[in-house]
Design a binder for these strands. Structure first.
Lengths: 356, 356
DNA sequence: CGTACGATAGTAAACGCTTACTTGCCCCGC
DNA sequence: GCGGGGCAAGTAAGCGTTTACTATCGTACG
């Protein structure tokens, strides 16, 4: 492994000169000398040591992205966006799947700090865990102290996302759309209460109800996980609660997909018997059947912007926070509620199916 | 940012002692002293600088995973497996989406090398690009020279995967299964010819045909991309080729899913008119409709094993290569071929649909 | 003709940590 | 009583870069 010293020796110059040419420093180097250095570097297959460079500069061109689970298409998209933006500047992207476990999130951030990552992006929502958030704050401040940038793509303990979307407004929109279709009994699969984003989306659901004059029924709101299985479980909980409903509004797509699956198992047709909506518009949403009505988030763009934001912070600027637009996309999983009689029939059918 | 010097000063010991306790070195340190050091470290919120440590050790606990696209569930699963295994040892995982572009792959590996990553795992198949492979070989050798481990999860230019599956055998199995269902005209969506894995799967297809005494028809094999859109395009190509078929065997799930979609648009029912099979068993495969018959790969396990393999290499051992088992899972997208008449009808219907 | 300045290149001091070597003690056995 | 051995801790030499200072050489200018 050739080092800068070897290159310097071969080119017959000092290491300072080599450094100046290979690191593209804004320092005048005689073109002839420069060429000689480049030639030597090529001959020796010299690749600068980023660690040594980082040791000196106090941080390395690495951005850590904390996600809940890279296997969740939502996060995969965001990470891809970050990667695309980061790679043009020669930054590497570290993904950290926390599984929403405070301890894992904390230890990942610590690791990122020990690596002197130049930026950490929280792709998912923050956890409502005071102990974690205190620890986190310490690490993040230490990171900022050595010059790192910190970006959130979702609400978190310390406030709003630097790059985000208006969760409440979007959710309100989809509830209103459901109401416009004629639904009055709209259930809500709320996601984990331990996530800030769940609260925002629930708030949007409530606002949607209020905006359309629909009274809220606590039996129609169930707290869940954030994956497909939770969607199925959520439907079971709703059925067990006993309050009739003609639509299910889920806090994310995975939940909605799971709900549709369970509904089918219960013999209920979507959207004939029950309409279902998601949130996020992950790639699968469009290709599921029925295709899912949902709110489309510019996931990749969020990732790209998050990195761009960090880049500006690293450059010493103080960029403004950004709220990206979302768009409602109504597909096959929503329709008018069944006629009064049909509705009653559908509801009655449920208990039977559950027993079966 | 407290450094080891600060801790040493506060604890009233030398930096050597601090290093010995915080780096868990196998060196006797008086328990009382150790406690004093730990206490000082805690007070100062000291986190060791991994760069400095790595500069000395010649590599850092970072593993780079080269994938084709992190957004592809196949790779997301593998990466997650690597991450799970890596995180227990305090390793960080860098994901690099190459999009199967030689230049990107090359530049990612170079970046990983400059960061002195301790291991690089190629999750996807190698590209059949001589220039790239030569460059790659250089970097990989340099990395091995500083102590890094290199692992492949798919066939590549230099040989078999250290951790892999038997692509040909698995593909042969699914073709045989189709033949057992009664299919004799089985088309193949082959994936990109630029990937080694495509060749292996094609080979399996051929073996399956041979094993069941079905003659091969070149019009039934079409080279494609590796994503959903390519699957749709593949169906179009097959239709254009004009040779009748009752089943489509795709080189991966995404392709199969795209094919099913296109088939539906052409008015063909799966599996009544055409059976379709995939390969990989990504999460979506089971929840698509019809659910996809495919070959299940232990994706996460592959990731875990790949890291475990690397870990052993780093420890100086020479682990054996591993071929993981795959399992055929027949679901809703496959069935018996249509009766002779129905088959003829289905084939006849195609051209019309294409025109429409 | 002396000087100051621009253009280049070199010197050497960090950056934070690990570790081979050295030092200082204390205790044991002859 | 003293040499030797073992435990603890310290010293200091790197690891590969960057960069603030210096140094050198012409040359243009007063």
């Amino acid at each position: 492994m050739a080092s800068i010293t070897d290159v310097a020796r071969l080119a017959g110059v000092s290491t300072a000169t080599v450094s100046r040419v290979v690191s593209l420093a804004p320092y005048a180097v005689n073109p002839a000398t420069r060429e000689r250095v480049l030639e030597a570097a090529r001959t020796l297959d010299y690749v600068p040591n980023a660690l040594a460079r980082g040791l000196h500069k106090s941080h390395v061109p690495v951005v850590g992205v904390i996600v809940h689970d890279i296997t969740d298409p939502y996060f995969a998209e965001v990470v891809r966006g970050v990667e695309d933006a980061a790679s043009v500047g020669g930054f590497l992207v570290i993904t950290c799947s926390s599984d929403r476990i405070a301890e894992r999130e904390h230890s990942y951030v610590r690791l990122l700090r020990s690596m002197r990552a130049s930026t950490v992006i929280f792709a998912g929502s923050g956890l409502t865990d005071p102990a974690l958030n205190a620890e986190l704050a310490m690490h993040l401040n230490a990171m900022r102290a050595y010059g790192a940038a910190v970006v959130h793509c979702s609400p978190h303990a310390l406030g709003d996302a630097e790059i985000g979307i208006d969760n409440a407004a979007a959710m309100e929109g989809i509830v209103v759309a459901l109401a416009n279709l004629g639904h009055r009994r709209i259930a809500f699969l709320a996601g984990p209460a331990s996530l800030y984003v769940s609260h925002e989306r629930l708030e949007g659901y409530r606002r949607g109800l209020a905006a359309t004059g629909i009274g809220s029924d606590p039996r129609l709101v169930v707290s869940t996980g954030f994956n497909q299985e939770s969607g199925a479980l959520g439907v079971d909980a709703l059925v067990a609660a006993g309050a009739p409903f003609t639509a299910i509004c889920a806090a994310n797509d995975l939940l909605a997909l799971g709900a549709i699956q369970r509904l089918a198992e219960l013999g209920l047709d979507v959207p004939r018997d029950v309409s279902v909506t998601g949130f996020d518009d992950i790639p699968t949403a469009a290709m599921a059947s029925p295709s899912l009505s949902t709110v489309q988030l510019p996931l990749k763009e969020i990732g790209r912007r998050a990195f761009a934001f960090a880049e500006r912070v690293l450059a010493g600027e103080t960029p403004k926070n950004d709220v990206l637009p979302t768009t409602l996309v109504m597909r096959g999983s929503t329709g008018a509620p069944p006629a009064e009689a049909a509705e009653a029939a559908a509801i009655q059918r449920v208990p039977t199916a559950v027993v079966a």
